Simulated scan of single mutants.
Amino acid sequence: MVTFSIIGDLHYSIGESESEEMMELKNRFFQHFLTEFFSLQSDFHVSIGDLTHHGKREEIQSIYAKINHLSASFQHVLGNHDLYELTKDEIVQLTGQPRYHAYSCSEGRVIRLDSTREKRPDNWSGVIDNEQFYWLKQQIDSHQNEPLIIFSHHPLYNTTTRSSEFNGSIIKEDPIHELLQNHKPGGYFFCGHCHTHSICREDNWCYIQTAAVYDHPVIRTVSIKNRTLKTTLHEIDDIELKNNAKKIHDSLYEKITPFDPYGHFTDRSRKFVLI
């Protein structure tokens, strides 16, 4: 069995002219949320991308200082916001994590993708660069009989909720779609980006999307055993944390979320068995 604890888009931010009150509120929120996240017993703790909001160097350094103090099992999937100001080489140097990576576990081949564009706040859709695509193809060719466990910030086009919207996915022209579709054992595709919980199945692929933390401050827990996936949301029963999440959200976006981040109850907890 392999287990994961996953957080959606965290959007950790450092404002240029924040009040002392807001800075203290943020510090309490992130300390509480991250402590809860890393207290869950899992093989791996994964951020599904947009760990930071502005992609500033100081944001990366600050959030990683908090994370490194709490955990050694953290895996960071790059999100579009994480690359708004830094190059990919710079963020790899800062985090010590490769931008894409693969390893085997008892339940299949785990693949962490980089679906981001570098310094493109004007285009927040996803794309898989040529170097990474051929690496991915080699990974799949070498593990043809194993399920894939894929982590990508962006969903595949027209799978999860909002993934067919403008800039809502890895672009539909990207050859990754056909590459994964042709992998007969199928697998599990974890993503974020669209800020809403969504789970769906298409043939032998299961797509699991997790909402942004400020919209719903929860942690997705996942276990996979014998081609059976079980996932649910770990709720943090703390009124102050939930209120602080809303205050931080409002300070960043200055508007209410214009869609339902919670989804249907089957978008929060589900069981899948691969054929």
Rank of each mutant, 00 (worst) to 15 (best):
L252S: 04
G79R: 00
T87P: 14
M1K: 12
F272R: 03
R28D: 09
I199D: 00
K242M: 07
Q61T: 15
H193G: 07
F37M: 02
L180W: 06
I199H: 01
W124R: 09
G186F: 09
E21K: 08
Q132Y: 08
N123V: 14
E21V: 12
V77F: 10
F265E: 13
L148M: 09
C105V: 15
N68L: 09
I171C: 09
E58N: 11
A212N: 12
Q144V: 15
H216I: 06
F166R: 14
D250N: 11
S47G: 12
S251N: 15
R162K: 13
S198T: 08
I224P: 01
Y157E: 05
T231K: 01
S39P: 05
S5N: 08
C105I: 13
V273W: 06
E90V: 11
A245Y: 09
F4D: 02
S19V: 11
E20L: 14
Y207P: 00
P121A: 05
E107S: 11
S104T: 14
Q75G: 07
R112L: 11
I91P: 04
S163F: 08
N204W: 03
N243I: 12
T231F: 04
Y103S: 06
G15V: 06
Q93W: 13
S169L: 07
R201H: 10
F44D: 03
F29L: 00
T159N: 01
D203L: 07
V218T: 10
K119W: 12
F259K: 07
Y188T: 03
E20C: 11
L233V: 03
G108W: 03
I208G: 00
K246R: 12
H177S: 06
S106D: 15
I208E: 01
L229A: 02
C206K: 00
H76G: 04
W205Y: 14
S163T: 10
H143G: 05
S42K: 04
D43I: 12
L233G: 02
I149E: 07
I256S: 15
V218R: 00
T3D: 03
L78V: 15
V213L: 00
T35G: 04
L179H: 04
N243K: 05
H45Y: 07
Q41I: 13
V273D: 10
I208H: 00
C105K: 04
L252I: 14
G96W: 14
H11L: 11
G126M: 03
I236H: 02
S152G: 11
S269V: 13
S47E: 05
F29T: 00
L180I: 14
D203H: 08
P185S: 07
G187P: 06
Q31S: 14
